[in-house]
Design a protein around this nucleic acid. Structure first.
Lengths: 366, 366
DNA sequence: ACGCTTGCCGAAACCGGTTTCGGAACCGAC
DNA sequence: GTCGGTTCCGAAACCGGTTTCGGCAAGCGT
């Protein structure tokens, strides 16, 4: 093979560790040990080496080091995109965070996608087997997540974005969605709402359980009764959200406020309310979660708990790098709060549940 | 350094080329040449080597090869995300395409982000300098694109997603946006529209010029006069699109149909029409470009030219890999068509431009 | 003055591959 | 039977680093 015409300018030679060692009159082994902080190098030569390496613009080649050390300085990320995908808007911010934090440490991001769970596991294996990455960030965790067992067995470091059922030996970072949901309920209760509905998030995903728990905890803390009818099934997009809204609003005792686990679904609540001639933020209050950009432009602007995906990406890669360097996973766990965006989609109830029910009936007769 | 407790299961040793050569009673040099198709290896041993390598599950370590060959089998992709970013929805599909095509060839995707042009160029340089990638896919090209000159000078292979001003020595793939825009005009003209407006796309980006050209070409082909008033300034999101719509509809001779360079802006046209009490698809026809998912759910569903970003990603990586292997860049150029999604936002005009103008005036008085 | 650490560095092996070079074995031709 | 030319593989250098091992010289105590 080799030797085809490539008509590309020849790349200039890099400065290698041998160049540095020759310039110093040392062996490359000594230079290497000096640069890597071995204890058997005197402080004087360590400094001399560091300075001339710096001056000559020497930077070790990650993949040349890797052949001996096994580390390539790359964080792995494998996405599984679904048909109607709620986390697409998150992507750009999340990737920016990871890439930024990685390059600050001289690392890079290796990204792959999978279309099924089997392919996901195979891809993880392949990246590990080919030593393309030193570890993984696992986004969107599940209660029972097969990726974890796979990587545990393979002995590969990883950090979860989200919590999971059994997290022994797992490092993780998460946003306290349950606290946000409880806080949403508390805010609405404080405004005078007593019938507060909930629209669930994606089935199976760990966050969905937590946010539901948060809603329930919030209701209990406010001394409100939990009615199963008030809890709508998982909704991940405006269509499903609209269905959920219709269902909640047609209850004999409809909620005057709705807490929604996912912004995309909350957008659908606007449609459901509009159908019934109800004004969001007055006749029906909504507080949601995610902080998607569209929420700012709808009318009224959506009150929601925003998560900083860029910061999450940064934190996760920092944790992963520490993990690869040997930090105990149990010491690498962190929970951050979502920040409430107090906008126009919630307020004190202007109608009682009974009045609201009459309004809904009237609108559906027309 | 080194030697911290890592409490991770030890990774099992890989099978190396030496394992294979020993099993065969050959030297590793011979095995290497056999596997890489050197001409000085007999067909018999080549087959024998290939088979036992396969049987033993041998796969060369990309970064070990790279230290000699300089190739790491990785495609580089650097994104620059903007504030209000039109291409976010594209991301998942695009990445899926790239990742899929790459892994089919045993390559991986190395992704980075940049927040400014300088950072972009620095990031490209860094990835090249550290030999993290063999070449780049450059998304979102500009008329005059500094990335191209940088990579040309560095002698690094790359493939453009989009065309550019001076493309000598450039391989590229693009969607024929100009043809789509011309086709949109032709469709509307065939339905009887004579006043057809245009909402431009992102300033500076190469595609924006091409789509404008396509609109103009379409108008000329249909024998329609081109009125500067009919051409609205660049609009990239619903807000700007709404402004553009207001402006076009308040003309003394408003267009009865609007061709829009970007779906996100077309969504804003819906708002502008609603404000005036005009029905999209009847009083105002709209044909747009991109094929974003939201277009299917608005009322009426948006007629638009959809681009297959997954396919684009696949094609681009295949081209890049060929390019890295030495194919002449001028032989690597491809133009694909967007596919028209014939939905509900366009139809024959029900109002003349003059009648439309009266309707608009009436609505603004209220 | 002696031996014994200790500090510090050179020498060389090593990681997992690729590539160059040279020569043995075979070939047909004379 | 000898010779030049192929065919095909082994040997060894090489890529850019890391890591082990051993030894020299200084420092120390006695």
């Amino acid at each position: 093979m080799g030797g085809q015409i490539n008509n590309l300018a020849p790349r200039q030679r890099r400065v290698t560790i041998s160049d540095v060692s020759e310039a110093l009159g040392l062996t490359k082994g000594t230079v290497s040990r000096a640069l890597n902080g071995y204890p058997d190098i005197s402080e004087t030569t360590r400094l001399k080496v560091a300075r001339t390496a710096e001056r000559m613009g020497y930077r070790p080649l990650a993949h040349a080091q890797a052949i001996r050390t096994g580390r390539v300085r790359s964080v792995g990320l494998v996405f599984q995109f679904y048909e109607h995908d709620g986390h697409r808007p998150f992507l750009a911010d999340f990737l920016t965070g990871i890439s930024g934090a990685a390059s600050a440490e001289g690392w890079t991001l290796t990204l792959a996608t999978a279309s099924s769970q089997d392919e996901m596991l195979a891809t993880l294996d392949r990246l590990v087997d080919e030593r393309k990455v030193d570890g993984f960030i696992l986004p969107r965790t599940y209660r029972d997540d097969p990726r974890i067992e796979t990587l545990r067995r393979a002995g590969v470091p990883f950090v979860l974005f989200g919590r999971t059922g059994d997290d022994t030996g797992c490092a993780w970072f998460d946003i306290a969605g349950e606290a946000a949901m409880a806080n949403a309920v508390a805010r609405l209760a404080a405004l005078g709402h007593t019938r507060i509905g909930f629209v669930q998030g994606g089935e199976g995903a760990n966050y969905a359980h937590l946010r539901l728990d948060g809603y329930i905890a919030g209701m209990q803390a406010a001394g409100l009764a939990i009615d199963d009818d008030l809890i709508a099934p998982p909704s991940l997009n405006p269509i499903e959200g609209c269905d959920a809204g219709r269902r909640l609003l047609s209850l004999t005792e409809p909620p005057t406020a709705i807490v929604c686990a996912v912004d995309q679904a909350a957008l659908g609540l606007y449609d459901a309310a509009r159908e019934r001639g109800l004004a969001i933020g007055r006749e029906v209050s909504v507080i949601s979660y995610d902080g998607i950009p569209e929420g700012r432009f709808v009318d009224p602007p959506l009150s929601t708990f925003a998560v900083d995906n860029r910061a999450a990406g940064e934190r996760l890669t920092q944790m992963l790098i520490e993990r690869v360097r040997g930090t105990d996973p149990h010491a690498l766990r962190d929970l951050a709060d979502a920040s409430f965006l107090d906008r126009g989609s919630h307020g004190p109830p202007v109608l009682s549940s009974a009045q609201l029910a009459r309004r809904v009936r009237a609108s559906s007769i027309m």
